[in-house]
Design a protein around this nucleic acid. Structure first.
Lengths: 232, 232
DNA sequence: CGGTGCGTTGACATTTCTCAACTGTTGTGG
DNA sequence: CCACAACAGTTGAGAAATGTCAACGCACCG
């Protein structure tokens, strides 16, 4: 049951870093790994919240289905992010669906039961949870800001600029952690609009794209588009 | 310094309800009331996070200024809501601006210093904070959903349906907690678009408006608009 | 009583969506 | 290992939604 590797991996999470070794080991007991194929379900809305998760590898999409059957993407989560802590801490059931976006997605699943027992008895874990929830708040706030920016154009520029870059040298190179259609869903625009925007920017020499790879040729202009909604 | 009234008022907050009386009194010590005029600043972005707040009366707007000088409303907070807890718990400075929207807004201000001392020593308070932060998560998630709904039309319908109603009897009567221009900012649309949508719905007999008062005449249709983006 | 700002309305420009067709890519079973 | 199905991505044309700019009435406040 006990897995020393899991404890070691948990230590690398920002909000667990400060936790003492014994607590991490206690957490790791009752945790297990899950490897998922693209599209595989982690949990569904309405299901009892029996565990929360850490993304080790790949991307997970958290979404809801709106009344008209559309999928509302709430979040795309990459490596090192935790999710569903709030559900485990304060809700009987999951409030959304979660599926693996990329193939070979690896998660650490932390069972609710043992976790809650620890949470109730160990105040250090409560502090870690507060910091973890705060990180969620920050990221959701950014999401609200991102969506509230009026134009789809500015939203896309905004998103690209926040994407972690690959190379410090030369032109800015970015790599999408998921398919373009997922990016479109994230930005609340249609795939067609995304495609057209990228083409226009490419024609204007602002960037070059090849699959999921983006090479930003004129970062200054991209910033201007994100900020002032300057045209291209 | 000690104010029994404040302690009594804190007890009515959802996440403080479970706290024992001695802890509430300790919290109330070091808290003070603030009454604000419309537009008065509670705190500004970048300022040291020296306190968090409880809304007793009125509405507070939390917003950021984007690079192009526009105001991005992150949240409108009504009676009973707390805000800036996350800032006090995990950040050196406030990450956004907060101002009173309505005149005569009353807040309870809870100083960070004493609060953090309590937080670190009393595990019950940590649990209360986790529940408070979770409530924020839920409300931000709703906000993301609200904004991600493609059309402004559906967003408005969605918002009206979530607004607490006044009368159980007869037609649904709602009252906006702030001016229409604030509603427009909240929905990320222009005041002109808001005005035109309301006029169209009024002409169609869907609702009646008078200032901030809304009388919903055809709730079913409004739900359909929010869900399927049915036309009017 | 005059200003200041909210709300409304009109005309027009622009953005984005929808629908439809087509191409390229990927993964899989034969 | 190939052929084909399924799906991602692109492109075009036209429709619909929303923003912009401008003007004006109206209420509230000093």
């Amino acid at each position: 049951m006990f897995d020393a590797t899991i404890a070691a991996e948990l230590r690398f999470l920002p909000h667990f870093r400060a936790l003492p070794a014994d607590l991490l080991q206690a957490l790791a007991t009752g945790a297990r790994r899950r490897t998922l194929a693209a599209g595989e379900v982690v949990f569904s809305e309405g299901e009892p919240a029996r565990a929360f998760y850490v993304v080790r590898q790949g991307t997970v999409k958290v979404y809801r289905i709106s009344a008209d059957g559309r999928e509302q993407v709430l979040h795309h989560l990459g490596e090192g992010r935790t999710f569903a802590e709030a559900a485990v801490l304060t809700m009987p059931v999951y409030p959304a669906h979660a599926v693996a976006v990329t193939g070979g997605t690896e998660l650490i699943e932390i069972g609710a039961e043992r976790f809650l027992a620890l949470f109730r008895t160990d105040p250090r874990l409560a502090a870690a949870m507060v910091s973890s929830l705060s990180m969620w708040l920050i990221s959701l706030t950014e999401r609200v800001e991102e969506l509230a920016v009026a134009s789809a154009t500015a939203r896309l520029a905004h998103y690209l600029l926040r994407l972690p870059s690959k190379l410090a040298q030369g032109p800015l190179v970015l790599e999408l952690p998921f398919a373009k259609k997922d990016l479109a869903a994230h930005l609340a625009i249609t795939p067609e609009t995304l495609s057209r925007l990228l083409r226009r920017w490419q024609d204007a020499g602002l960037l070059r794209t090849e699959g999921r790879r983006f090479e930003i040729l004129d970062e200054r202009l991209l910033v201007a588009i994100a900020d002032r909604d300057e045209k291209v």
